[in-house]
């Protein structure tokens, strides 16, 4: 199989209590690509995203079946520590959620507490903020509270915070849905830039955004993976009628 596949899902089912949220998902995510997960609300796309870094298990009474293979290992194997998985697979949330700490401490928090040996924390903070294209705006206020930043700046700070852990994969759960159009454009540019070094999997409600920034797109409906292919193909000549109906706005 291709060497450029970073995560493989095999027959994955997921349940919230009795309710099945995902049904028999089989898909491969490619390295250094942007993959968009689209579909109407409740289709399971966010659930799938949170399966990849084991954030779903923070909710009581959830259950996973099947294999999610990352680095030749099922991340749900009993001997795998979810904390280790989350260090390698970072996440950016829907609403910017910086800690009520200084900008500097927001970035240094992860590396410091997870015991990653860092030679030069200042350099790491600078590098992470530069990668998130926030450095020029905050370099003089690193010791000010992150809560004073604008929503868009906060979201880029959250991206920088995730990047400071040097993850392999960056999961983004509707990262621009709470932001204005200018901030959204900045984040999209950033994603374009980041895919050189990272694999990005992004959930979005915004069809144009998926078309603009992603290389591959997966369409979900009612917990099923309906169609998964190159973004260009999905948006120009999808194989399945449901996909076409959704992207043309006939339902959803």
């Amino acid at each position: 199989m291709d060497a450029d596949i970073i995560i493989r899902l095999k027959n994955v089912n997921f349940f919230y209590g009795e309710n099945q949220a995902l049904t028999n998902i089989n898909m491969n995510f490619r390295k250094n690509k942007v993959t968009a997960l689209i579909g109407p609300s409740g289709c399971g796309k966010s659930t799938l995203l949170r399966l990849l870094n084991r954030m779903n298990e923070l909710i009581d009474a959830t259950r996973v079946e099947g294999d999610i293979i990352f680095e030749d290992k099922n991340i749900y194997a009993p001997d795998v520590d979810p904390v280790e998985i989350r260090r390698k697979i970072g996440m950016v949330f829907q609403k910017p959620n910086p800690f009520p700490k200084t900008i500097y401490n927001n970035i240094s928090y992860g590396p410091k507490l997870t015991g990653v040996p860092v030679d030069d924390m200042n350099a790491l903070v600078e590098q992470s903020l530069k990668q998130a294209v926030l450095w020029d705006e905050v370099k003089d206020i690193l010791n000010k509270s992150a809560m004073n930043l604008s929503g868009g700046q906060q979201q880029r700070l959250c991206i920088a915070r995730a990047l400071a852990m040097k993850p392999d994969i960056l999961l983004m759960d509707e990262p621009t849905s709470a932001l204005d159009p200018i901030s959204t454009a900045k984040i999209e540019e950033l994603i374009e830039e980041l895919k050189k070094n990272y694999t990005i999997i992004i959930v979005t409600h915004n069809m144009q955004q998926a078309a603009r920034i992603s290389d591959e797109t997966a369409f979900f409906y009612l917990g099923n993976l309906i169609e998964y292919s190159k973004t260009e193909k999905i948006f120009t000549k999808p194989d399945v009628k449901q996909t076409e109906d959704y992207i043309t706005g006939r339902f959803g």
Binding site: I85, R86, G110, A162
Partner: peptide
Amino acid sequence: VPKTFREASLALGVSKWQTIFRI
């Protein structure tokens, strides 16, 4: 304390124990 703080910390690979104590 907002759930989002806990999520942000846990998603960085910080353990639950440390998340409780630091955040």
